[in-house]
Amino acid sequence: MAKPMEQITWQELEIGAVVTEVGSARQYHTGSWRSERPVVNKDQCIKCGVCWLFCPDISIVRAAEGHFEADLTYCKGCGICAKECPVGCITMVGEEE
């Protein structure tokens, strides 16, 4: 999207309210909703990808070292990844101001 969403006025919408840029929701950062963040213990991670598959917010990414970790731009802190990780190497940690 050429412009940030806050700057788009209704006059600029396409006819039929067509949205022409796919996946543009990624400019809306749901990470700000979070009150807890998942922290991965890299050394224990068996790189299975279970956390990635179950994340409803598509907020787990594979790090360069091969382990999986949360993308905090979008992670809402639901805790599903921590609960489903088969080795229990994700801990939810409170966000601070």
């Binding site: 990624r26 749901t30 409803p56 917010d57 598509i58 809402k76």
Partner: peptide, 16 residues
């Protein structure tokens, strides 16, 4: 084919 930035509640298994 369905991206992050969606506004479902935390832990929404319908979005999953």
């Amino acid at each position: 084919n369905f991206t992050s930035g969606h506004r479902a509640c935390q832990g929404c298994a319908e979005a999953l």
